[in-house]
Amino acid sequence: MPRDLELIRNETVKVWKKKRFAVILLILLVLVPIFVYAQMKIAQSSQDKFADWRAELRQRITDNTNALSSDRIPEEWKKWRIALVQQLQYYLDRDVNPNTPNAVRFTNTFLQNAVGLFIPLMVLAVASDIVSSERAGGTIKMLLTRPVRRWRILASKLVTLTLYVSLILVSTAAVSYLVAGLVFGYGGWAEPVFVGFKLQGTDLDTSAVHAVPQGVYMLMQLGLVWFSAMTVAVIAFMVSVLVRSTAASLVTMMAAVISGSILANMASSWHSAKYLFNVNLDLSVYLQGSPPPIEGMTLAFSLLVLGVWALAAIVVSFAAFTRQDILA
Protein backbone atom coordinates (compact mmCIF):
# COMPACT_ATOMS: atom_id res chain seq x y z
CA MET A 1 0.00 0.00 0.00
CA PRO A 2 2.69 2.57 0.82
CA ARG A 3 4.22 1.65 -2.52
CA ASP A 4 0.89 2.32 -4.30
CA LEU A 5 0.64 5.69 -2.61
CA GLU A 6 4.17 6.42 -3.72
CA LEU A 7 3.17 5.60 -7.31
CA ILE A 8 0.12 7.87 -7.16
CA ARG A 9 2.19 10.65 -5.66
CA ASN A 10 4.70 10.20 -8.44
CA GLU A 11 2.03 10.36 -11.17
CA THR A 12 0.21 13.31 -9.62
CA VAL A 13 3.35 15.39 -9.38
CA LYS A 14 4.27 14.41 -12.94
CA VAL A 15 1.00 15.72 -14.34
CA TRP A 16 1.35 18.87 -12.26
CA LYS A 17 4.82 19.50 -13.63
CA LYS A 18 3.53 19.20 -17.17
CA LYS A 19 1.53 22.35 -16.31
CA ARG A 20 -1.69 20.90 -17.72
CA PHE A 21 -3.70 22.03 -14.74
CA ALA A 22 -2.18 25.50 -14.94
CA VAL A 23 -3.30 25.77 -18.57
CA ILE A 24 -6.82 24.71 -17.63
CA LEU A 25 -6.97 27.32 -14.89
CA LEU A 26 -5.71 29.93 -17.32
CA ILE A 27 -8.37 29.01 -19.89
CA LEU A 28 -11.03 29.31 -17.19
CA LEU A 29 -9.71 32.67 -16.06
CA VAL A 30 -9.89 33.99 -19.61
CA LEU A 31 -13.20 32.46 -20.68
CA VAL A 32 -15.35 32.85 -17.59
CA PRO A 33 -15.06 36.67 -17.49
CA ILE A 34 -16.23 36.74 -21.12
CA PHE A 35 -19.34 34.74 -20.26
CA VAL A 36 -19.94 36.84 -17.16
CA TYR A 37 -19.76 39.99 -19.26
CA ALA A 38 -22.22 38.58 -21.81
CA GLN A 39 -24.59 37.58 -19.02
CA MET A 40 -24.33 41.04 -17.50
CA LYS A 41 -25.28 42.63 -20.83
CA ILE A 42 -28.33 40.36 -21.10
CA ALA A 43 -29.39 41.22 -17.56
CA GLN A 44 -29.00 44.94 -18.26
CA SER A 45 -31.02 44.91 -21.45
CA SER A 46 -33.89 43.01 -19.86
CA GLN A 47 -33.83 45.39 -16.93
CA ASP A 48 -34.27 48.31 -19.31
CA LYS A 49 -37.10 46.60 -21.08
CA PHE A 50 -39.21 45.16 -18.30
CA ALA A 51 -40.61 46.59 -15.10
CA ASP A 52 -39.91 43.42 -13.14
CA TRP A 53 -39.01 39.78 -13.62
CA ARG A 54 -42.63 38.71 -13.69
CA ALA A 55 -43.32 40.86 -16.73
CA GLU A 56 -40.22 39.45 -18.39
CA LEU A 57 -41.21 35.89 -17.60
CA ARG A 58 -44.74 36.48 -18.92
CA GLN A 59 -43.27 37.78 -22.16
CA ARG A 60 -40.91 34.82 -22.44
CA ILE A 61 -43.77 32.37 -21.97
CA THR A 62 -45.84 34.17 -24.61
CA ASP A 63 -42.97 34.34 -27.09
CA ASN A 64 -42.28 30.65 -26.74
CA THR A 65 -45.95 29.81 -27.04
CA ASN A 66 -46.15 31.83 -30.25
CA ALA A 67 -43.07 30.09 -31.62
CA LEU A 68 -44.84 26.79 -31.02
CA SER A 69 -47.66 27.66 -33.38
CA SER A 70 -45.32 27.80 -36.34
CA ASP A 71 -45.57 24.61 -38.39
CA ARG A 72 -42.06 24.77 -39.65
CA ILE A 73 -40.12 24.24 -36.46
CA PRO A 74 -38.79 20.71 -35.93
CA GLU A 75 -40.65 18.34 -33.63
CA GLU A 76 -37.89 18.10 -30.99
CA TRP A 77 -37.66 21.88 -30.72
CA LYS A 78 -41.36 21.94 -30.13
CA LYS A 79 -41.07 19.41 -27.34
CA TRP A 80 -38.25 21.36 -25.75
CA ARG A 81 -40.28 24.57 -25.97
CA ILE A 82 -43.43 23.00 -24.53
CA ALA A 83 -41.45 21.75 -21.54
CA LEU A 84 -39.83 25.16 -21.13
CA VAL A 85 -43.15 27.01 -21.29
CA GLN A 86 -44.72 24.75 -18.69
CA GLN A 87 -41.72 25.03 -16.39
CA LEU A 88 -41.65 28.81 -16.62
CA GLN A 89 -45.36 28.84 -15.97
CA TYR A 90 -44.76 26.71 -12.86
CA TYR A 91 -42.22 29.24 -11.59
CA LEU A 92 -44.50 32.17 -12.37
CA ASP A 93 -47.50 30.59 -10.65
CA ARG A 94 -45.45 30.09 -7.50
CA ASP A 95 -43.94 33.55 -7.68
CA VAL A 96 -40.38 32.21 -7.84
CA ASN A 97 -37.92 34.03 -10.06
CA PRO A 98 -36.02 31.45 -12.14
CA ASN A 99 -33.42 33.98 -13.26
CA THR A 100 -32.26 36.03 -10.31
CA PRO A 101 -28.81 37.26 -11.26
CA ASN A 102 -26.28 35.98 -8.73
CA ALA A 103 -23.04 34.05 -8.76
CA VAL A 104 -24.60 30.72 -7.77
CA ARG A 105 -27.18 30.94 -10.57
CA PHE A 106 -24.46 31.86 -13.03
CA THR A 107 -22.30 28.93 -11.96
CA ASN A 108 -25.21 26.50 -12.32
CA THR A 109 -26.04 27.79 -15.79
CA PHE A 110 -22.41 27.73 -16.79
CA LEU A 111 -21.99 24.11 -15.65
CA GLN A 112 -25.18 23.19 -17.49
CA ASN A 113 -23.80 24.57 -20.73
CA ALA A 114 -20.29 23.27 -20.16
CA VAL A 115 -21.12 19.64 -19.43
CA GLY A 116 -21.44 18.55 -23.06
CA LEU A 117 -18.30 20.03 -24.55
CA PHE A 118 -16.27 22.42 -22.45
CA ILE A 119 -15.66 20.19 -19.45
CA PRO A 120 -14.91 17.06 -21.52
CA LEU A 121 -12.33 19.02 -23.50
CA MET A 122 -10.62 20.20 -20.32
CA VAL A 123 -10.62 16.67 -18.96
CA LEU A 124 -9.02 15.49 -22.20
CA ALA A 125 -6.14 17.89 -21.67
CA VAL A 126 -5.06 15.69 -18.77
CA ALA A 127 -6.46 12.31 -19.80
CA SER A 128 -5.32 12.08 -23.39
CA ASP A 129 -1.61 11.81 -22.82
CA ILE A 130 -1.40 10.30 -19.40
CA VAL A 131 -0.12 7.03 -20.89
CA SER A 132 0.76 7.87 -24.47
CA SER A 133 3.15 10.66 -23.50
CA GLU A 134 5.24 8.17 -21.54
CA ARG A 135 5.46 6.09 -24.65
CA ALA A 136 6.26 9.01 -26.92
CA GLY A 137 8.93 10.24 -24.53
CA GLY A 138 10.35 6.81 -23.94
CA THR A 139 9.97 7.15 -20.17
CA ILE A 140 7.65 4.17 -20.10
CA LYS A 141 10.64 1.86 -20.17
CA MET A 142 11.99 3.31 -16.96
CA LEU A 143 8.56 3.08 -15.41
CA LEU A 144 8.12 -0.55 -16.31
CA THR A 145 11.57 -1.68 -15.25
CA ARG A 146 10.67 -0.86 -11.67
CA PRO A 147 9.87 -3.87 -9.55
CA VAL A 148 6.13 -3.12 -9.64
CA ARG A 149 3.51 -5.05 -11.55
CA ARG A 150 2.20 -3.34 -14.62
CA TRP A 151 -1.42 -3.18 -13.58
CA ARG A 152 -0.42 -1.34 -10.43
CA ILE A 153 1.29 1.31 -12.49
CA LEU A 154 -1.76 1.72 -14.69
CA ALA A 155 -4.03 1.79 -11.66
CA SER A 156 -1.98 4.58 -10.12
CA LYS A 157 -2.44 6.55 -13.34
CA LEU A 158 -6.17 5.96 -13.22
CA VAL A 159 -6.39 7.17 -9.61
CA THR A 160 -4.35 10.23 -10.54
CA LEU A 161 -6.72 10.94 -13.42
CA THR A 162 -9.72 10.69 -11.09
CA LEU A 163 -8.13 13.15 -8.69
CA TYR A 164 -7.46 15.63 -11.49
CA VAL A 165 -10.96 15.33 -12.94
CA SER A 166 -12.37 16.22 -9.53
CA LEU A 167 -9.92 19.07 -9.18
CA ILE A 168 -10.84 20.42 -12.62
CA LEU A 169 -14.57 20.34 -11.88
CA VAL A 170 -14.32 22.02 -8.52
CA SER A 171 -11.98 24.64 -9.98
CA THR A 172 -14.42 25.31 -12.81
CA ALA A 173 -17.22 25.89 -10.34
CA ALA A 174 -14.98 27.94 -8.04
CA VAL A 175 -13.61 30.19 -10.78
CA SER A 176 -17.04 30.83 -12.26
CA TYR A 177 -18.48 31.55 -8.80
CA LEU A 178 -15.66 33.90 -7.83
CA VAL A 179 -15.63 35.82 -11.12
CA ALA A 180 -19.41 36.04 -11.44
CA GLY A 181 -19.65 37.22 -7.85
CA LEU A 182 -17.70 40.36 -8.70
CA VAL A 183 -20.57 41.39 -10.98
CA PHE A 184 -23.69 39.67 -9.63
CA GLY A 185 -22.86 39.37 -5.94
CA TYR A 186 -21.90 36.23 -4.03
CA GLY A 187 -25.36 35.42 -2.68
CA GLY A 188 -28.03 33.05 -3.88
CA TRP A 189 -27.12 29.81 -2.09
CA ALA A 190 -30.51 29.49 -0.44
CA GLU A 191 -32.71 30.56 -3.35
CA PRO A 192 -35.19 27.89 -4.45
CA VAL A 193 -34.89 25.88 -7.66
CA PHE A 194 -37.59 23.44 -8.73
CA VAL A 195 -36.48 19.91 -9.57
CA GLY A 196 -38.37 16.74 -10.37
CA PHE A 197 -40.19 17.79 -13.55
CA LYS A 198 -41.08 14.72 -15.58
CA LEU A 199 -42.01 14.81 -19.22
CA GLN A 200 -44.97 12.62 -20.18
CA GLY A 201 -45.28 12.95 -23.92
CA THR A 202 -45.85 16.65 -24.38
CA ASP A 203 -47.17 17.19 -20.89
CA LEU A 204 -45.11 18.06 -17.87
CA ASP A 205 -45.77 15.91 -14.83
CA THR A 206 -45.31 18.14 -11.81
CA SER A 207 -46.44 15.69 -9.13
CA ALA A 208 -42.87 15.02 -7.95
CA VAL A 209 -41.68 18.62 -8.23
CA HIS A 210 -40.09 20.07 -5.13
CA ALA A 211 -37.87 23.03 -4.38
CA VAL A 212 -34.23 22.69 -3.36
CA PRO A 213 -31.82 25.49 -2.46
CA GLN A 214 -29.56 26.55 -5.31
CA GLY A 215 -26.50 25.49 -3.35
CA VAL A 216 -27.79 21.92 -3.15
CA TYR A 217 -28.69 22.08 -6.83
CA MET A 218 -25.11 23.04 -7.61
CA LEU A 219 -23.78 20.14 -5.57
CA MET A 220 -26.10 17.67 -7.29
CA GLN A 221 -25.26 19.04 -10.69
CA LEU A 222 -21.53 18.88 -9.98
CA GLY A 223 -21.95 15.26 -8.94
CA LEU A 224 -23.68 14.37 -12.20
CA VAL A 225 -21.18 16.35 -14.26
CA TRP A 226 -18.41 14.48 -12.44
CA PHE A 227 -19.88 11.15 -13.49
CA SER A 228 -20.01 12.08 -17.17
CA ALA A 229 -16.57 13.74 -17.02
CA MET A 230 -15.17 10.55 -15.48
CA THR A 231 -16.64 8.49 -18.30
CA VAL A 232 -14.95 10.72 -20.87
CA ALA A 233 -11.73 10.56 -18.87
CA VAL A 234 -11.73 6.78 -18.66
CA ILE A 235 -12.44 6.34 -22.37
CA ALA A 236 -9.69 8.83 -23.18
CA PHE A 237 -7.47 6.82 -20.84
CA MET A 238 -8.18 3.71 -22.88
CA VAL A 239 -7.43 5.50 -26.14
CA SER A 240 -4.24 6.81 -24.58
CA VAL A 241 -3.20 3.22 -23.83
CA LEU A 242 -4.09 1.96 -27.28
CA VAL A 243 -2.75 4.78 -29.44
CA ARG A 244 0.91 5.57 -29.48
CA SER A 245 0.76 9.25 -30.33
CA THR A 246 -0.68 11.82 -27.95
CA ALA A 247 -1.97 13.95 -30.83
CA ALA A 248 -3.86 11.00 -32.28
CA SER A 249 -5.46 10.10 -28.97
CA LEU A 250 -6.47 13.70 -28.33
CA VAL A 251 -8.00 14.12 -31.78
CA THR A 252 -9.87 10.81 -31.54
CA MET A 253 -11.46 11.80 -28.25
CA MET A 254 -12.25 15.34 -29.35
CA ALA A 255 -13.97 13.99 -32.43
CA ALA A 256 -16.00 11.62 -30.27
CA VAL A 257 -17.05 14.34 -27.83
CA ILE A 258 -17.89 16.91 -30.49
CA SER A 259 -19.85 14.46 -32.62
CA GLY A 260 -21.78 13.57 -29.48
CA SER A 261 -22.88 17.13 -28.94
CA ILE A 262 -23.92 17.38 -32.59
CA LEU A 263 -25.75 14.06 -32.49
CA ALA A 264 -27.59 15.04 -29.32
CA ASN A 265 -29.14 17.90 -31.29
CA MET A 266 -30.19 15.95 -34.34
CA ALA A 267 -30.47 12.28 -33.47
CA SER A 268 -33.95 12.29 -32.02
CA SER A 269 -35.24 10.02 -34.75
CA TRP A 270 -32.28 7.65 -34.70
CA HIS A 271 -33.20 5.79 -31.56
CA SER A 272 -30.27 3.43 -31.19
CA ALA A 273 -27.94 6.46 -30.95
CA LYS A 274 -28.92 6.57 -27.30
CA TYR A 275 -26.48 3.73 -26.60
CA LEU A 276 -23.52 5.93 -27.58
CA PHE A 277 -21.72 7.39 -24.59
CA ASN A 278 -21.33 10.83 -26.11
CA VAL A 279 -25.09 11.36 -26.48
CA ASN A 280 -25.55 10.65 -22.78
CA LEU A 281 -23.03 13.13 -21.41
CA ASP A 282 -25.47 15.90 -20.55
CA LEU A 283 -26.88 14.46 -17.33
CA SER A 284 -28.02 17.88 -16.15
CA VAL A 285 -31.08 17.71 -18.44
CA TYR A 286 -32.59 15.20 -16.02
CA LEU A 287 -32.09 17.56 -13.11
CA GLN A 288 -33.62 20.43 -15.05
CA GLY A 289 -36.47 18.34 -16.37
CA SER A 290 -35.91 19.34 -19.99
CA PRO A 291 -36.43 16.71 -22.68
CA PRO A 292 -33.48 14.32 -23.19
CA PRO A 293 -31.81 14.20 -26.63
CA ILE A 294 -33.65 11.00 -27.55
CA GLU A 295 -37.05 9.97 -26.33
CA GLY A 296 -37.07 7.29 -23.68
CA MET A 297 -33.75 8.27 -22.10
CA THR A 298 -33.86 8.61 -18.32
CA LEU A 299 -31.27 9.33 -15.68
CA ALA A 300 -30.97 5.63 -14.85
CA PHE A 301 -30.57 4.77 -18.51
CA SER A 302 -27.86 7.36 -19.11
CA LEU A 303 -25.97 6.38 -15.98
CA LEU A 304 -26.11 2.75 -17.07
CA VAL A 305 -24.87 3.51 -20.59
CA LEU A 306 -22.04 5.70 -19.30
CA GLY A 307 -21.19 3.15 -16.63
CA VAL A 308 -20.99 0.27 -19.12
CA TRP A 309 -18.80 2.29 -21.48
CA ALA A 310 -16.52 3.32 -18.63
CA LEU A 311 -16.24 -0.22 -17.30
CA ALA A 312 -15.48 -1.60 -20.73
CA ALA A 313 -12.84 1.08 -21.24
CA ILE A 314 -11.17 0.15 -17.96
CA VAL A 315 -11.16 -3.55 -18.82
CA VAL A 316 -9.70 -2.90 -22.28
CA SER A 317 -7.06 -0.52 -20.88
CA PHE A 318 -5.80 -3.02 -18.33
CA ALA A 319 -5.94 -5.97 -20.70
CA ALA A 320 -4.01 -4.06 -23.35
CA PHE A 321 -1.50 -2.47 -21.05
CA THR A 322 -0.50 -5.66 -19.27
CA ARG A 323 0.00 -7.50 -22.56
CA GLN A 324 1.51 -4.82 -24.73
CA ASP A 325 5.02 -5.45 -25.91
CA ILE A 326 6.48 -2.14 -24.86
CA LEU A 327 10.11 -2.83 -24.19
CA ALA A 328 10.80 -4.27 -27.58
Binding site: L169, G196, M220, L222, G223, L224, W226, Y286
Partner: peptide, 17 residues
Protein backbone atom coordinates in the same frame (compact mmCIF):
# COMPACT_ATOMS: atom_id res chain seq x y z
CA UNK B 1 -11.49 16.32 -0.81
CA UNK B 2 -12.84 17.44 -4.18
CA UNK B 3 -13.47 13.83 -5.16
CA UNK B 4 -15.29 13.16 -1.90
CA UNK B 5 -17.41 16.29 -2.36
CA UNK B 6 -18.37 15.37 -5.92
CA UNK B 7 -19.19 11.79 -4.96
CA UNK B 8 -21.39 13.14 -2.21
CA UNK B 9 -23.11 15.44 -4.71
CA UNK B 10 -23.58 12.54 -7.10
CA UNK B 11 -25.17 10.47 -4.36
CA UNK B 12 -27.43 13.34 -3.40
CA UNK B 13 -28.58 13.78 -6.99
CA UNK B 14 -29.48 10.09 -7.20
CA UNK B 15 -31.32 10.20 -3.91
CA UNK B 16 -33.18 13.35 -4.86
CA UNK B 17 -34.26 11.86 -8.17
Amino acid sequence: LCTALLLFGFGWALKDT
